[in-house]
Write a protein that binds this DNA or RNA. Structure first.
Lengths: 140, 140
DNA sequence: GTAGACCTTGACGTACGCGTCAACGCCAGG
DNA sequence: CCTGGCGTTGACGCGTACGTCAAGGTCTAC
């Protein structure tokens, strides 16, 4: 099949396929007599592997071991040692990233709370502890 | 003070200060007779505000309301309505991002687990439950 | 007067993953 | 024969937040 068909079947663009080839991520496609790239089903599998990982947030370079694993003849791209290592590294990265974001979230939330109070204090209400909060005497 | 001193005190570089000015994020600095930029303590406060937000992962444009709030004479950059809105938007973004990352993390973990099993099955061990694990009989 | 440290503007480089032309070749249908 | 649709390479653009270099002006100290 030619590049346009492969691109469509893989849900990507011809530009992307040529880009991957230029990176050496995809093997150089065979050329038919007129110079057109010629692809087979295996290329489609490689692309599906790449797209799956991309959706996970993997960079293109991180997908390389998976692609090479498939090209080496393995039925799955992620059963080779190098691929497993990338998975593990990525898990660690994800954990670190989540932790950082949660910490930031807490700090931003705290800043927001403080700023809201300050905004009220500066804007309108002079002393905000006149009326005792009713909720204390509500239940007994 | 001149640009080098401000940069050092703010923990940044002269390039960054000129860049912010070119964006209109910082107000154009006054020039002394020789054409050098001249800054005061207020500029330092603006920069501190920007850096704090940058550390939270805010983009430069997102810091603009805070800077303008300070420039408007408010004692804090985050007590203006626009700044509070940015805080709230950022909180929502952070929550969405954390959720997405956690979902991805779960999927990657699942892929890793599956791939490890497949790798074992293809590589060596035929039936991996011959020797009962010794740790079970260790303590009693 | 001259070296060195500071300042000025301008412009290109970086990383990522392509999008979007430009200018051209090839091939099938009418 | 010509149009339209496919393909080819090459090269610039984008967004973000600057780094880095170039070529020059300015000020201080010796």
């Amino acid at each position: 099949m030619r590049i346009g068909e492969l691109a469509e079947r893989a849900g990507t663009t011809t530009r992307t396929l040529r880009y991957y080839e230029s990176l050496g991520l995809l093997p150089p496609a065979d050329r038919s007599g007129n110079g057109y790239r010629s692809y087979d089903e295996e290329h489609l599998r490689l692309l599906e592997q790449i797209r799956t990982l991309q959706d996970f947030g993997f960079g293109l370079e991180e997908t390389r071991p998976f692609v090479e694993c498939l090209r080496a003849g393995h039925p799955a791209g992620d059963t080779c040692a190098a691929s497993l290592e990338v998975y593990r590294r990525k898990l660690a990265e994800l954990d670190a990233c989540v932790a950082r974001l949660q910490e930031v979230r807490a700090q931003v939330a705290a800043q927001l709370a403080r700023a809201q109070v300050e905004a009220l204090g500066a804007d309108g209400g002079a002393d905000p502890m006149c009326e005792p909060s009713v909720s204390e005497r509500d239940s007994p």
